[in-house]
Computed example of a mutant assay.
Amino acid sequence: MALQNIDFQREYSLPTEEFIDVLNRSTLGERRPVNDVARIESMLKNASLIITARNNGKLLGVARSLTDFAFCTYLSDLAVDVQFQKSGIGVRLIRETKLHTPTAKLILLAAPAAIDYYPKTGMTKFSHCFLLDDVNALVVKG
């Protein structure tokens, strides 16, 4: 499918079922709480920026970000239906996200299978990232 047949746009709300569907069609659903509807609803409600890729209304891809629109944008979810991957939709979703936050640095954590994808888009690999899942893992001194 040619990119000119795809509408890229900012959406201020996205139906939960539609988001879960594209997550599952992209394989990102394997690493997202797609069976916890309340948590997915919260993810959507608290997103600062949602960019979608649609063809005749059908959701083909989504970029969901948390941003202050000035300094940093965390691209939390980049999902493209597997049938449309490698067609440029993912790169265009990244581009549209960056265009909506031009002064902010765009940051994302790559899925293991996508680590080799992002350098091909022109993004720079950055090794200084840290992750905390469990607050009890923090070492507090004093």
Rank of each mutant, 00 (worst) to 15 (best):
R10Y: 01
E30A: 12
E17R: 10
V139D: 10
G88P: 06
S76Y: 04
P102V: 08
I51Y: 02
L99Y: 03
F8P: 08
I40Y: 06
A70T: 15
A111D: 10
A79H: 06
L44V: 05
M43E: 08
A104C: 06
L106S: 01
K45Y: 05
A79N: 03
V82C: 09
L138M: 15
Y12W: 08
D116M: 10
A79D: 07
C129Y: 11
N24P: 00
E96N: 05
P15K: 11
I94K: 00
S87E: 14
H100D: 07
T67G: 00
T103H: 03
K120V: 13
L138R: 09
E96R: 04
R39F: 07
A38C: 07
T103G: 00
Q83K: 15
L109P: 02
P112E: 11
K105G: 02
G142N: 11
R92Q: 12
R25Q: 04
A2R: 12
L66R: 01
R39M: 12
L59Y: 02
R39I: 13
F8T: 07
S87D: 11
E18P: 00
D68I: 14
T16W: 07
G88W: 12
T103M: 02
R32V: 12
L106D: 01
R10Q: 13
D36L: 06
I115W: 00
V22R: 05
S48T: 11
V140W: 12
N55H: 06
K120R: 14
S76M: 10
A110G: 10
S48Y: 05
K105R: 09
G57I: 04
Y74F: 11
A38T: 11
K86P: 01
Q9W: 00
L59V: 06
T52E: 00
R10D: 04
I51E: 03
S13A: 09
A111W: 07
Q4M: 02
I6H: 00
I50V: 15
V82S: 08
T124H: 09
A113D: 13
L60I: 04
K58M: 04
M43T: 14
P119G: 03
D7P: 01
P15S: 10
D133E: 15
P15A: 14
D21Q: 12
R32M: 15
T52H: 00
I107E: 04
L60A: 01
V135I: 15
Q4P: 03
L109Q: 08
I107Y: 08
N55Y: 07
A38E: 13
F84D: 03
A38F: 05
C129G: 14
P102G: 01
V135T: 12
S26I: 13
F19W: 11
A104Q: 03
R54A: 04
G142C: 05
L3Q: 03
S65N: 09
N56V: 04
G57Q: 03
